[in-house]
Design a protein around this nucleic acid. Structure first.
Length: 484
RNA sequence: GGCCCCGUCGUCUAGUGGACCAGGACGCAGCCCUCUCAAGGCUGAGAUCGCGGGUUCGAAUCCCGCCGGGGCUACCA
């Protein structure tokens, strides 16, 4: 389909006095990254066009624990930067049941809907095909309301329904393929199909921006909008998010909860930037940019129509970029929950914020995610370093023990405990063993930090201080002797 | 079965008939820098634009057919 046939949001904005978008998640579990993207796109449109953003919780599934999940959604949006007060709501769909049933009654009274007492089994028996849908059996039976009687919307037999979609052009549905769908249950309560439309109409929504899974329902929604006497909104059906197997992201299989990413140390700014990029790319090719710039550049009609893979690798890279862009002070502040929180592996009284702050610049280029920070600095705050045995084994081969012993002797008499001095001494020792510094530093690094990779060694030793360093070097020598 | 949507490097994408033997980013490989690892710099590999026909002097871009993936087809949302 050609993009030239797409309608511009701006064009239509002239028709509607003020743009009103809505984000309408159903509280059926942890807040999903896909939902986050939908919310962000809605928000970007509202911000750019100076419109309103409405939050509505689709909670007509009465089983759920509403207050908790609703709070989870509000919190997730808050983390993304959508703060209460800057949007309308949250409205609870369940609290609007009267409006829904009133609309159902109006539709019935206008002859646009009819009552039906068919069971599913009866329908299947008549059509002979379980996938065939409803056959219109009760259309002209003139049934009135009654217990167990569902209300069905009378869809047109002829013609077609065109959904003007900003992203997809003009999906066109033959009306004959649309069944007379149920809009109210036997007990009178409205179904989602009716409730969304009633709410959207009532709330004056001008742009419905939601997931692609709703596209097939859009013609039914549109028919309902018209039946209710309202001008249908501008539609925009966003591509779904898929996993590596190109399957729709699933709560069971995939890591989709926004809070999981937050708890792993992804910055909300990075997440927001990444999510915006899933299905849209700013003109000019620049991908990393502040939210304000994205909002300015964002165009709904430029959104890709094909499914997008949620690539954690790219998210991670983006997060690293954001981490590195932080000022030292901001970086330290961002790290604090990870180094001072209740889950740290060292005893809290051993933590030294000044020491961490001094090491932070060394950490900043080495962490892509905040959860990677503690392992980089743990040797500063642990009573003794956790030795990785593989690292120990390879570092303590052949000249390792000799280098360690000579370093102890050389470092012991040092008066100036500074990186350059520490480095020069070790380089000289390495030279005597025909080893480059890159090899000579290994036994010292493992002895002091427990690992073969990490922060720059001599800066680390300088920050750790002479007494602790010497103590660890000696402890390593003792272990070597004991192992022998 | 019916209806609808989608299909450019592994991934996210640029691309709206000629400047595209297809550009960027992530990832990958190599080099430089270097006390390890990162970060940074440079270089490179990687896409017969799902397939097949057309239209055109010329097609990733227009038309037709097909294939593949997905969604809807609930008295779920």
């Amino acid at each position: 389909m050609s993009r030239t046939r797409r309608l511009s949001v701006c064009t239509l904005a002239v028709i509607a006095s003020r743009i009103r978008v809505r984000f309408a998640p159903s509280p059926t579990g942890a807040f999903h990254v896909g939902g986050a993207r939908t919310a962000l796109y809605n928000w970007a449109v509202a911000l750019r066009e100076g419109g309103d953003f409405v939050l509505r919780i689709e909670d007509t599934d009465q089983e759920r624990n509403r207050p908790e999940w609703t709070q989870g959604i509000v919190d997730a949006l808050y983390w993304l930067g959508l703060h209460p007060g800057t949007y309308e709501g949250p409205y609870l769909q369940s609290e609007r049941a009267d409006r829904h049933t009133a609309a159902a009654r109006r539709l019935y009274e206008a002859g646009l809907a009819y009552y039906c007492d068919c069971t599913r089994e009866q329908v299947v028996e008549r059509t002979g095909n379980p996938h065939r849908g409803y056959d219109g059996f009760c259309r002209d039976r003139g049934l009135g309301p009654g217990p167990g009687r569902a209300l069905r919307f009378r869809t047109p037999d002829q013609g077609e329904t065109v959904v003007e979609d900003v992203i997809r052009g003009r999906p066109t549905f033959p009306n004959a393929a649309l069944d007379d769908f149920v809009i109210a249950r036997g007990d009178g309560s409205a179904l989602y199909m009716l409730a969304v439309v009633v709410d959207d109409v009532d709330m004056g929504i001008t742009h419905v921006i939601r997931g692609e899974e709703h596209l097939s329902n859009a013609p039914k929604h549109q028919l309902l909008w018209q039946a209710l006497g309202a001008e249908p909104p501008v539609w925009a059906h966003l591509p779904v998010l898929v996993d590596a197997q190109r399957r729709k992201l699933s709560k069971r299989r995939d890591k989709v909860a926004l809070e999981d990413y937050r708890d792993e140390g992804y910055l909300s700014e990075a997440m927001r930037n990444y999510l915006m990029l899933l299905g849209w790319s700013p003109p000019g090719g620049q991908e990393v940019m502040p939210w304000e710039s994205m909002v300015e550049l964002f165009r709904l009609e430029q959104v890709q129509a094909s499914p997008a893979f949620f690539d954690v690798g790219k998210l991670r890279s983006l997060n690293g970029t954001y981490l590195r862009a932080l000022t030292p002070g901001e970086f330290i502040a961002a790290c604090r929950p990870w180094v001072e929180g209740p889950n740290v592996r060292w005893s809290p009284e051993c933590f030294d914020l000044a020491l961490f702050a001094a090491a932070a610049p060394l950490v900043q280029t080495r962490a892509a995610v905040l959860s990677e920070v503690p392992p980089l600095v743990d040797f500063f705050f642990l009573e003794k370093p956790t030795i990785e045995e593989d690292a120990w084994a390879s570092a303590m081969r052949d000249p390792g023990p000799a280098i360690l012993a000579e370093a102890i002797a050389a470092y012991d008499e040092l008066e100036h405990w500074e990186p350059q001095v520490l480095k020069d001494r070790l380089a000289a020792i390495g030279l005597a063993h025909d080893r480059k510094l890159s090899a000579a530093q290994a036994p010292i690094r493992v002895a002091v930090t427990g690992r073969s990779v990490g922060l720059p060694l001599f800066e680390s030793l300088a920050l750790l201080g002479k007494p602790v360093t010497m103590q660890r070097l000696r402890a390593a020598r003792e272990r070597l002797e004991a192992d022998r």
